[in-house]
């Protein structure tokens, strides 16, 4: 069964990197993967998306993603003016980088919403609150288990090198553990 992921961010916040890491980890897990950004001329700070498809058979769909299984929101300010959960499947999941509780967000979706303060984790570990992508992946994996931690570690360490690889991996694990420790309610 193919799974479709949509990442919401602003250009420059590393959403393409998020998609690349997810695709590479899926590939490490022995799955087929397709990842691509919003097509067009992006400018720094402009709202954009990155997309990932993961499947057990070769992926032939080339069009954009309209009904995602999962939504990852890297920048909470995008929830103003943008329907980040548009088309999200009712049995899907939205993972949002914010300090707020899901109930405070007022998102119009039947899907499950999980929040993680990825900015705090990123600030703590990397000294920069905008490097949220790996923490967000950690929270996503803690709930869904779509990808193995081993493959994610390999994907992160091939994408980054040295200190950046270590700190990104640490941020992912930190968020993963935080969500796991919350128990079922997340």
């Amino acid at each position: 069964m193919m799974k479709e992921i949509r990442v919401h961010a602003r250009a420059g916040q590393g959403a393409i990197t998020t998609a690349t890491i997810l695709a590479n980890a899926a590939f490490e897990d022995g799955k087929y993967a397709l990842s691509f950004p919003t097509f067009g001329a992006a400018r720094m700070g402009a709202p954009m998306n990155a997309f990932v498809r993961i499947g057990n058979t070769p992926i032939r769909v080339r069009s954009q993603i309209y009904k995602p299984d999962y939504v990852l929101v890297q920048d909470p300010t995008l929830m103003k003016g943008y329907d980040v959960v548009a088309g999200l499947k009712p049995d899907g999941l939205a993972v949002i980088n914010t300090g707020k509780k899901p109930s405070e967000l007022g998102l119009k979706t039947e899907a499950r919403v999980v929040t993680i303060n990825a900015a705090r984790i990123a600030k703590q570990i990397m000294g920069r609150a905008d490097r949220v992508n790996t923490a967000l992946i950690g929270a996503f994996i803690a709930i869904t288990g779509e990808l193995s931690l081993e493959s994610l570690e390999r994907a992160i360490k091939s994408r980054f090198s040295g200190k950046a690889a270590e700190s990104n991996w640490k941020a992912l694990i930190e968020a993963y553990n935080e969500v796991k420790n919350r128990g079922n309610g997340a």
């Binding site: 087929y32 993967a33 397709l34 691509f36 992926i59």
Partner: peptide, 12 residues
Amino acid sequence: YDGYILSHTEMP
């Protein structure tokens, strides 16, 4: 090959 749809899309 199609711009973006292939040029900027990653696959194995």
